[in-house]
């Protein structure tokens, strides 16, 4: 029994660990996609954030400045994507692919010049994003240990759940959100009502980059302690998948990320104890996602104007 509770705690902890960066990026993806811009460049934006976050934290000694700068680096690439797709009417898939090449390309090149290595120097504990509830729970009791396991997470994890709430509120309860969603459904309608579609979309793609950058920074500043070229391998795409899974809604994306995180967490615990082949276990999150899609989710409503460049006639 104690073991089960213990394991459960570890699974939940791992779930949250895996979920966090995905969720930041997925929230970012929501902003862009819902406003009508396909952003498959999330991966590249995360990489930029992952590198910048850890480097800035290393030099300033402050995890929070690093974290913020990670977001800003993502936003920089978001701006690039917005410039191409929103301002210049570029094909969104092609531009996103370019971002996915440029992001890693540029940061790894910088890493090479700065550190003479593709890896950055590992952060000291004080430079990492702190764990908030270390030592709060009494680990001598079963329940306390469970709680200690679950809440051993980094501050970035708690922050992302706050972010989900904020994004949900912004999307569905504010003027900005209503307009944002309208831009993704019917940009011409927005234009006739005096809403500046170009500005809205531009801003949303930048926000998308910022949140993706934060997601990337979580990987290198909380989960790990340094940036390596394989820090971000596919998380961006999983985040996009989670958003499609969640039918382009922030709370849906939350479920998608949690499902994914949970399966990944399960994998870690089972991998240690069950003797099932690790490679097969690693497949679980992906297989489960597909099965859940078939059984429960099905077709999702893609924002009508998603992927279509909006060009104002003069």
């Amino acid at each position: 029994m104690t073991d089960i509770i213990n394991n459960l705690g570890i699974i939940l902890y791992a779930t949250l660990i895996y979920t966090t960066p995905l969720l930041y990026a997925a929230l970012g993806s929501c902003f862009s996609e819902v406003s009508g811009v396909v952003n498959i460049g999330i991966e590249g934006m995360m990489t930029a954030g992952a590198f910048t976050g850890t480097v800035v934290a290393y030099f300033t000694g402050s995890p929070w400045i690093g974290f913020l700068c990670g977001g800003l680096a993502g936003a920089l690439f978001g701006t690039l994507h917005a410039l191409a797709t929103v301002k210049l009417g570029a094909d969104q898939t092609i531009a996103g692919t370019a971002i996915n090449m440029l992001g890693p390309g540029i940061v790894i090149m910088i890493a090479k010049v700065m550190f003479n290595s593709t890896d950055t120097i590992p952060l000291e504990a004080s430079m990492k994003i702190p764990r908030l509830f270390r030592g709060v729970f009494d680990t001598t009791t079963v329940f306390g240990r469970f709680m200690d396991n679950v809440f051993a997470n980094f501050a970035s994890t708690y922050l992302v759940f706050v972010a989900v709430l904020i994004v949900w509120f912004v999307f569905y309860k504010t003027r900005f959100g209503l307009r944002l969603r309208a831009c993704g459904e019917h940009p011409q309608a927005c234009e006739t009502l005096g809403i500046n579609v170009i500005a809205m979309r531009f801003l949303c793609v930048c926000i998308s980059g910022f949140l993706s950058g934060l997601g990337g920074a979580c990987v290198t500043m909380a989960i790990s302690t340094q940036f390596r070229p394989i820090s971000i391998v596919g998380q961006g795409f999983i985040a996009i998948a989670a958003v499609i899974f969640g039918k382009f809604r922030p709370h849906g994306a939350l479920l998608g990320c949690l499902l994914f995180g949970f399966c990944s967490g399960l994998k870690v615990v089972l991998g240690g104890s069950s003797g099932i082949d690790m490679q097969l276990l690693s497949m679980i999150p992906y297989v489960v996602t597909v099965i859940v899609l078939i059984l429960f989710v099905g077709k999702s409503h893609v924002p009508s104007a998603n992927g279509k460049p909006y060009i104002k006639s003069k």
Partner: peptide, 11 residues
């Protein structure tokens, strides 16, 4: 099942 191909391809 009408499942978005980009999603399933990533999986």
């Amino acid at each position: 099942w009408g499942i978005n191909e980009v999603l399933s391809m990533i999986m």
